[in-house]
Design a binder for these strands. Structure first.
Length: 498
RNA sequence: GGUCUCGUGGCCGAGUGGCUAGGCAGAGCUCUGCAAAAGCUUCUACAGCAGUUCGAAUCUGCUCGAGACCUCCA
């Protein structure tokens, strides 16, 4: 079988393309991070888990990856054209907190959630407020190039002029004329030459707390410029992958492209990857829809729509079971299905780790071949635009094989030693290294496992004496504590912590 | 209104012309002191209509339905 190459769906060209990094062996990846003006909800989990397994897969392929994910802590306009209220400043007033205190609080919470999900930390996590100077420099350059204009201390990007020379709207499939017709009629837009122009810098009104000095007076940066400035600074004028949610395609990413094209003469990234949304009853989960479930609520189960708590790994697995470019509908039944499926898969993985190869060559050549084929497909599926769903399907097909070897339905020597080793390697690589799943059920307390082991010994003795009352008592009481005992056929006992 | 996407069995979801997706739930059987787990077997699909084709969930058209973006948004 010829080794397949990584192909990714590029939103910019709307095609699956072979992934070829600009610098061989190295990958620069920028992913739009959170706005830390509030708590993260379930929808936010999707992009960060998605780009985490993409990051992990690139590492697995042997690339040196610089993964940059920003923290948007400068806030944007709540309602453009109106009083230009800074989202973060406004909330801070409500909660009577310093803006940076609020930013820190939600940044910490975000980091905590990311670690719950076992997401790897990005290589660099720059903040918008820490890069005001870079943003100002970039804006000056755009003005110098003639693609931005200053009005009353604010700076706007001239989209109309840009569109006359460059393919504006290519990423989002938009036509400028359509935008002209359909852009909402908002108040106070008189500053802009054209409605679709966007702010690079906004003059800060008196009450605005977050403000910085600039050549145009005191103000704060527009939303899109931060990503352009920070990606350019850390990844260069042209880098490999730019990621984010599909809802950022327009206007955010389209604007980034315009800014970078003027400043750097390049579309910033070669491959644009966008994950789809998590929906609730078919509707996108989001603040404005009022249908969001916070991550802390997911983990605790404390929400009217939740029948139970769902662990971070359950959510991660739930997301992995779907292709990242498909919408994923939230539901208790679906989450519970994911929880059980993950448990079954993980238990088989635990069994696999302990399997010893049988003597000699594969006793069942047909099975041996089938197992190898399923394993090799893992790489093919991942190379085909990160099809984690198909990899997991193959894992589930291998699960009965693993369990059958353990239970004796399949002879231990049915698989060759080499195949068994490959099986172990692939499961480790995919489950732990690439998919980033981890065991949540394990007790992290040696004393506890010692006590459980002791109880199991006592129960074994009881069963030998056919003292089932005692043995059942031990099993039932432990179960009430969330420790589930299973009698194996070979006389052993395994247990899991709920 | 404009642009675009989607509609798969009880639930979640793979899948771009022919071959079983997979998970969860349900049913039966085997194993087991009992239970749990596991193994084996099994029931529900491709929104509707028409067309292209030897053959379509997969291509085309229409109808119905849902959603996304056009404003902050993962």
């Amino acid at each position: 079988m010829s080794p397949s190459v990584l192909k990714v769906f590029n939103s910019y060209t709307r095609k699956k393309e072979e992934f070829i990094p600009i610098t061989p062996g190295h990958v620069g990846m920028y992913v739009c991070g959170p706005t830390v003006s509030g708590e993260s909800h379930l929808g936010h989990a999707r992009p960060f888990i998605t780009f985490d397994f993409i990051y992990r897969y690139l590492l697995h392929l042997g690339y040196k990856v610089r993964y940059v994910r920003n923290i948007t802590d400068a806030g944007h306009f709540e309602e453009e054209g109106r009083e230009a209220e800074d989202k973060i400043a406004k909330k801070a007033v409500l909660e009577k907190l310093e803006p940076m205190e609020l930013v820190q609080k939600y940044t910490n919470l975000f980091h905590w959630a990311m670690h719950q999900f076992n997401n790897l930390d990005p290589s660099i996590e720059p903040t918008a407020t820490g890069h005001i100077v870079e943003q100002i420099v970039m804006i000056e350059k755009i003005i110098a190039e003639g693609y931005a204009y200053v009005v009353n201390g604010s700076v706007y990007f001239d989209v109309k002029k840009y569109a006359a020379h460059y393919p504006y709207g290519k990423l989002s499939g938009r036509i400028l004329d359509d935008l002209l017709e359909t852009t909402r009629d908002l108040d106070g837009q008189d500053e802009k030459h054209n409605r679709q122009d966007f702010a690079l810098w906004k003059a800060a009104p008196e009450e605005h707390i977050m403000r910085w000095k600039s050549p145009w007076g005191e103000g704060f940066p527009g939303w899109h410029i931060e990503c352009s400035a920070m990606s350019t600074k850390y990844l260069g004028e042209e880098f490999d992958i730019h990621g984010g949610g599909m809802d950022l395609q327009f206007p955010h990413h389209e604007s980034e492209i315009a800014q970078s094209t003027i400043c750097n003469k390049h579309v910033p990234a070669r491959y644009w990857l966008h994950n789809n949304m998590i929906t609730l009853n078919g509707k996108k989960m989001g603040k404005s829809y009022g249908n969001q479930i916070m991550l802390t609520q997911m983990f605790s189960g404390d929400h009217p729509l939740l029948q139970q708590a769902y662990s971070p790994m359950t959510i991660r697995f739930f997301i992995l079971q779907t292709h990242y470019r498909s919408t994923l509908d939230f539901g208790n039944e679906a989450l519970q299905g994911a929880e059980k499926g993950l448990k079954r898969l993980w238990e088989a993985y635990d069994v696999l780790k302990k399997l010893e190869p049988g003597p000699g060559a594969a006793a069942d050549a047909g099975l041996d071949t089938r197992v190898n084929k399923l394993l090799l497909e893992f790489d093919e599926f991942m190379n085909d635009d990160f099809n984690t769903a198909k990899v997991l399907a193959n894992m589930f097909e291998l699960t009965p094989v693993i369990n059958s070897i353990r239970s004796g339905h399949i002879a231990p020597g049915a698989l060759s030693a080499a195949t068994l080793q490959t099986l172990k390697t692939y499961f480790y690589n995919y489950l732990e290294k690439i998919f980033g799943l981890k065991d949540e059920s394990a007790a992290d307390d040696n004393k506890l496992t010692g006590v459980v082991d002791l109880l199991i010994e006592i129960r074994k003795d009881a069963r030998k004496r056919k003292d089932y009352a005692t043995s059942d008592k031990i099993r039932n009481q432990l179960q009430q504590l969330g420790i589930v005992l299973k009698d194996e056929k070979d006389g052993g006992v395994s247990y899991t912590f709920a």
